[in-house]
């Protein structure tokens, strides 16, 4: 097993170091080379965004599931003189409810922060009939929302329980769907890269039909002939992908940071080790190009006499 891996590695290395003389057998072609580098670069650029999208929506889905699954909100709308009493009553009920880990009334500052995006800072909270919010944190087992609602209705008439499940589920589903779409896009990008490299390699092979005939005549094996083409396209794809990924990462870095208020859209990007993921794109592009060109070359060679 280790031997096979070592051999594969040394073969891959030998391929990249290459046989400069074998390479010379195929005339250099500036135009297709530039086209291949450009397509590989464009695909890598798109791949960076597909990866960023997948990672960001993945984070989003995880965060929403984790944060929302364990919290609920109790909203108390009561005349100002009864508010404090109702809050105390509600907190008492919640303390006695199995499955509730903790319950805490939000402070005025916290409520002001929640409303700030809509009403701006310095909202005179006290002069407005704003309902009081109580944040409930569930235990792992969770509580029984129907039982809790029934009890609250009897003891705290102004309380409305919002257990978040109603709007949490579709959001998490949407985020998960977006993540899947990101991966599908990545697969499509890889497939399109393979297809384009195959087309470019095939055009190079047919443009060099005479080279192939001469090489066969003087006793060159198919793998020797294929190598010159394979190495060329592998290196071009890797170079193009490196440029494209670098530009893609720069573009992601240049996305404006919307801060806490930005939410989903500005969350598109990488975090921590995620920044290393785009480093995988050039080697993956090279692998795709290697196999696409090799298959095209050997197929073309076999179809000739």
């Amino acid at each position: 097993m280790i031997g096979a891996v070592t051999e594969a590695l040394s073969r891959a290395l030998a391929l990249l170091v290459g046989d400069p003389q074998a390479d010379r057998a195929v005339p250099p072609t500036g135009f297709t080379a530039r086209l291949t580098i450009f397509t590989a670069g464009a695909m890598a650029f798109l791949a960076v965004f597909a990866i960023a999208l997948s990672l960001a929506t993945g984070r989003l889905a995880d965060r929403w599931s984790a944060e929302l699954a364990r919290t609920a909100t109790l909203r108390i709308s009561a005349p100002a003189d009864q508010a404090d009493a109702q809050i105390r009553a509600a907190l008492t009920v919640l303390d006695q409810t199995p499955g509730v880990a903790s319950a805490r009334a939000l402070t005025d500052d916290e409520e002001r922060a929640l409303l700030e995006p809509w009403f701006g800072p310095d909202l005179p909270l006290a002069s407005l009939p704003i309902p009081q919010l109580i944040e409930i944190v569930e235990t792992a087992e969770g509580y029984d929302p129907i039982g809790l609602r029934a009890r609250l209705q009897a003891e705290v008439p102004g309380a409305v329980l919002d257990d978040h499940t109603r709007w949490r589920t579709p959001l998490v589903a949407a985020a998960n769907r977006l993540r899947s779409l990101g991966w599908v896009a990545l697969l499509l990008i890889a497939g399109a890269t393979a297809a384009m490299i195959t087309l470019a390699a095939q055009s190079a092979l047919s443009a060099n039909a005479q080279v192939i005939r001469v090489m066969r005549l003087v006793g060159a094996r198919d793998t020797y002939i294929a190598r010159a083409f394979v190495r060329r396209f592998t290196l071009r794809a890797a170079l193009g992908a490196a440029i494209g990924s670098a530009l893609g990462v720069l573009a992601v870095m240049a996305l404006p940071d919307g801060g806490d208020a930005g939410g989903f859209l500005t969350g598109l990007g990488f975090q921590g080790a995620g920044w290393l993921v785009p480093l995988l794109i050039p080697p993956l592009a090279a692998i795709v190009a290697f196999f696409a060109t090799r298959a095209a070359a050997l197929r073309t060679l076999r179809s000739q006499a």
């Binding site: 066969r216 005549l217 003087v218 006793g219 060159a220 094996r221 198919d222 060679l301 076999r302």
Partner: peptide, 10 residues
Amino acid sequence: GRDDVALARR
């Protein structure tokens, strides 16, 4: 095979 032919050509 094709490789045999290549070797014979040498």
